[in-house]
């Protein structure tokens, strides 16, 4: 990676993050007064300096169309699984007997891709990301409606993982 050099880069290590935080501050204050700009810059500067301590891996996003498709898929799935989990809850106890743990072998290795997958799986009701083993690439999931294990594996592998690998790898 091309490490940023020069004085500006040393003062502001993550310029995009700095600008985004400053913009958020100004939008929340709903003013462009110089005082708010100074205060917002100080806060954003502090946050970017703290970020250097975390030393995040550089992330490269590819294929905006894949990102859009993933977002649409997740939106559809959130609606569908809300409906599914809602009916399970309202129909009563006997269906939660199907709940159980399962393991999936993942090919996705990128940290950010895994983080996004974790958010997607946990955010859609019915699936819960429990544990990921980075050396073996296995993921322990909890599923509320574990009747057909293979269908959940297909869902994760084909619907999400392939697109995530296109975006992040």
């Amino acid at each position: 990676m091309n490490r940023p050099s020069g004085l500006l880069r040393r003062v502001v290590p993550f310029p995009l993050l700095f600008l985004a935080l400053l913009a958020m501050w100004l939008l929340l204050q709903q003013s462009l007064a110089p005082g708010h700009i100074v205060l917002g810059s100080l806060v954003a500067l502090g946050a970017t300096w703290v970020m250097t301590a975390l030393d995040p891996q550089p992330a490269r996003l590819k294929r905006p169309t894949a990102m859009l498709r993933l977002a649409l898929r997740v939106l559809v799935d959130v609606f569908r699984s809300n409906l599914a989990v809602g009916t399970i809850i309202l129909r009563g106890n006997r269906h939660s007997d199907h709940a159980g743990f399962m393991t999936v072998q993942l090919d996705l290795r990128n940290e950010y891709g895994l983080a996004v997958l974790a958010i997607i799986l946990t955010c859609t009701p019915g699936t819960l990301w429990v544990n990921h083993d980075p050396t073996r690439g296995t993921l322990l999931l909890h599923v509320l409606d574990l009747v057909d294990e293979q269908s959940w594996i297909d869902l994760i592998k084909h619907r999400y993982e392939r697109l995530l690998m296109e975006i992040f790898e």
Binding site: V78, F79, N82, V85, G86, I88, I89, L90, G92, N93, S96, A99, F101, T122, C123, T124, P125, G126, T127, L128, H142, L144
Partner: peptide, 29 residues
């Protein structure tokens, strides 16, 4: 109503790991 269904799930589902799924209804839709 969706948030209420999620919270009802918190009461009705019978194991902890099943209950973890319930609050996501309120937190998404």
């Amino acid at each position: 109503a969706i948030a209420l269904i999620g919270s009802i799930g918190l009461l009705r589902l019978n194991s902890f790991y099943a209950r973890v799924h319930a609050p996501t209804l309120g937190a998404t839709l």
